[in-house]
Amino acid sequence: MAGVYEAVLCALSLPGVGLMEVVMEPDMCCGEEAAAAVRELQLILQALGTCQGNMAEGQLRVDANVSVHQPGEPLGVRTEVKNINSARFLARAIDYEIQRQTDVLESGGWILNETRSFDYKSGFMPEPNLPPLIVYDNKTVPAHADPQQVVNIDQIRERLPELPNVRRSRLVEQYGILPEHSFTLVNEDGLMEYFVSVARETKAEPRKIIGWIIKDLLGLLKQHSLNVSQSPISPMSMAELLNLLEAGTVSSSAAKQVRAIRGGNKKVLNKLIGLVQRELKGRADPVQVKTILEEKTL
């Protein structure tokens, strides 16, 4: 007699990994604004070391609640678009849902309070079972509580690193740079530290430093598919170049040539070798000229 076997399927999603939910106020008016808020949240999570906020890998997902209404009237009936896995999809999903609801209302219909899906391929990430979490502050924490067994929000706040919005405000206030430049410095990994290091070692105005870093250095790095940590031009070298420029020792054009050579541009170096050869009527040893130029510029 054949036996009967029952199979029990158990879905384990992120076992042992805590799930944190962040709820934002209903004060966004379009998909791109919501996407910008999510990108800012990603930067905050990265700055805190919570996670990388990689939406494609399931580290961060978004549920969008959308409703439309006339100015001055109460919020309309909302729908929820679940489990969106990229900021770009979030913007598209919200804008689509705004238009859909508008079309329904203008045609005399009504909006159902329902849950909708933007893309069936996005998958589903169920919540794991979590124990209750009680959060205290310095005023409410029990007197004899074990610090290892309670969550004191004030102690956590004291250990927080500088968040992106605070960094941007500090850069604008301390160095007098434009807000849009502060976004570039903070958003590009390692670029703010590079800027601060250069500013510490040069007498050049911060806005002039910004120009060289954002226009010249970033352009060079993108041209060679490098990140800031891989820059062939160190902050000290950039500061030295700016100091020469400030002192009038080199012109802006010459400084850009030096920057290009330090960035590995052989065409500029060969051009300078050619100029030296022309001035010396071909009597100089090209190898020796190249060595001297590299010593002076690198």
Rank of each mutant, 00 (worst) to 15 (best):
R116E: 06
F118K: 01
F118R: 01
Y120E: 04
Y120R: 03
K121R: 12
G123H: 02
F124C: 01
M125R: 01
N129H: 05
N129Q: 07
N129Y: 08
L130V: 10
L133T: 07
I134W: 06
V135A: 07
Y136M: 00
K139P: 01
V141E: 13
A143Q: 06
H144D: 15
H144P: 00
H144T: 12
A145H: 05
Q148F: 08
Q148P: 01
Q149V: 02
I153F: 11
Q155G: 10
Q155W: 10
R157Y: 10
R159M: 09
R159Y: 02
L160K: 13
L163F: 06
P164F: 11
V166H: 09
R168L: 09
R170D: 12
L171Q: 10
G176C: 03
G176K: 02
E180L: 09
H181M: 07
H181N: 15
S182T: 13
F183E: 11
F183V: 15
T184V: 13
L185G: 01
L185M: 02
V186M: 05
D189Q: 14
G190N: 02
S197F: 02
S197C: 10
A199K: 12
R200T: 14
E201T: 02
A204G: 06
E205H: 09
R207I: 10
R207C: 09
I213E: 02
I214C: 11
L217C: 10
L217P: 11
G219W: 04
L220M: 15
L220V: 10
L220G: 09
K222A: 07
H224K: 15
H224A: 11
S225N: 14
N227L: 04
V228G: 10
V228F: 09
Q230I: 08
Q230H: 14
S234H: 03
S234N: 01
M236V: 14
A239Q: 03
L241I: 10
L242Y: 07
N243V: 04
L244Y: 04
L245V: 12
A247H: 11
A247Q: 15
A247G: 13
G248A: 08
T249K: 10
S251G: 15
